[in-house]
Simulated assay, not measured.
Amino acid sequence: MNATVLNAPVDMADLPMQHPRAPASAAQARARFFNSGNAFNVKLPEVPARLFSAPPEDRFGVFDCDQSRALECGFAATTPLMLARYVRIAARDALLPLDVGATGSVWYVIAGSGRLSGGADGFAFGTGDVFLLPGARGYRLEAGAQDLLLWTVGNEPQLAFERAQPAPLAQATIDAVHYTAEEIERQFALIFASGTRDDTSGRALIFSSDRQAAARNLTPTLTLSFNTLQPHTHQRTHRHNSAAVTLVVQGEDCHSVVGDAQCPWAPWATLVTPPGAPHSHHNAGSQGARFLIVQDGGLHYHARTMGFEFLEGVA
């Protein structure tokens, strides 16, 4: 055998993690070293595409759309940076305390009415309302005369990953914001009375606030859009680097295609679209469809990595 081959150096990628030779302090002893051959081959589980159902009507409490086992992370997560939940409260009962361990969380009132108090500005809310809460402890959610069902998404996993805490309310980057169903319908009317261009991504209402208006986001890292789909149409196949968590609000005979999987819609189901996955939404029914989408898009907009592109031409 050729001696040159016998004496060939170890491939850089096969070198094990390196330690300092003679650390003189505890701080030096903590150092670890990799190289450009083995530092970038970390394999993490992919984000599963999945449908979660709303909890049965006779079950009350907080229900996480949790994929932490599949993601191999030690905290509840729907995607690596977002956690979706359903919250059901019995009539005239209350959820206390409600701690929002996120920079901010968006809430959609699926059914019922109630009142929010504690933590930030208090207000009454009803079916079809959307509201945004900054991270804080001690919120109180109280149901009205009927059972209350809510859907919420926050960036708890993003903070848990770094073991970080939300900023105190006085230093938070967002405030409590309340978007009433009546105002949402008024905004939809404006949108549907307007024209579109070929490169417009459907007719959708984008939520923001006075403090986030420059970035057109809901929070510094999350975006929220209320998408629509006319009967017998579909949203063209597209992709983006943000993950998406989608609530089915309205639609019959509708489905989404994520990668190669067809995902039939069900009332108030939550659909998880993995980052970068080609996907499309289809409405074969006779009424317009609506679906509420939360993405970690603010993070990608800031990093200039959104990567939105259509994968299908205009019909």
Rank of each mutant, 00 (worst) to 15 (best):
G135N: 08
D14M: 06
G118I: 15
N41Y: 00
L292T: 08
D198E: 15
A261Y: 00
A204G: 14
A24L: 15
S208C: 02
L222Q: 11
S225D: 13
S242A: 15
W107E: 03
A120W: 14
A164I: 02
A13L: 02
N35L: 12
Q67R: 05
E142C: 00
N241H: 15
Q146L: 03
T78K: 05
A31E: 10
A170D: 09
D93W: 01
A70D: 14
A315V: 12
L6V: 15
A303P: 00
Q250R: 11
V249S: 08
D58P: 02
A27S: 11
D175Q: 13
M17G: 08
E162C: 05
N155S: 11
A145R: 14
C73N: 11
G297H: 13
W107G: 00
A27C: 02
V294S: 15
A54Y: 01
A170Y: 03
A145G: 00
T127S: 06
I206R: 15
L6G: 04
R59L: 04
S242R: 07
D66A: 06
R30S: 12
P278C: 10
A193V: 07
G135V: 05
T221Q: 04
G126N: 06
F33G: 04
P231H: 13
A136T: 11
F52N: 04
P97R: 04
Q295A: 13
R115W: 03
A90T: 00
T219I: 06
V42T: 02
V5N: 11
E46R: 07
W265F: 12
P275A: 02
H232Y: 06
F60N: 09
L95C: 05
G74T: 07
F123S: 05
F161H: 07
L132D: 01
P278W: 10
P274V: 10
M12W: 04
A243K: 02
P134R: 11
P157C: 12
A94I: 01
V10G: 00
T200M: 06
Y86E: 06
E57L: 07
L159G: 06
Q287P: 00
M17T: 08
R32L: 11
V257I: 13
E312M: 08
R115H: 09
P48E: 01
T233G: 06
Q18N: 04
K43T: 13
D198P: 15
R211S: 13
R92E: 12
G313I: 07
R115L: 04
Q146S: 11
E142P: 00
H281C: 09
W151E: 01
E183A: 06
E185F: 04
N227I: 05
E57Y: 00
A143L: 05
E309G: 03
N38W: 00
G259Q: 10
V100M: 09
P23M: 14
A266H: 13
A189G: 01
T246Q: 13
D64W: 10
G61P: 13
S201V: 12
L6D: 08
A244H: 08
T233M: 14
A102H: 13
Q212W: 11
T223M: 11
G74W: 08
D198W: 14
C254E: 01
L218A: 12
M306T: 10
A284N: 15
R137D: 15
N155F: 06
Y179M: 02
L169F: 03
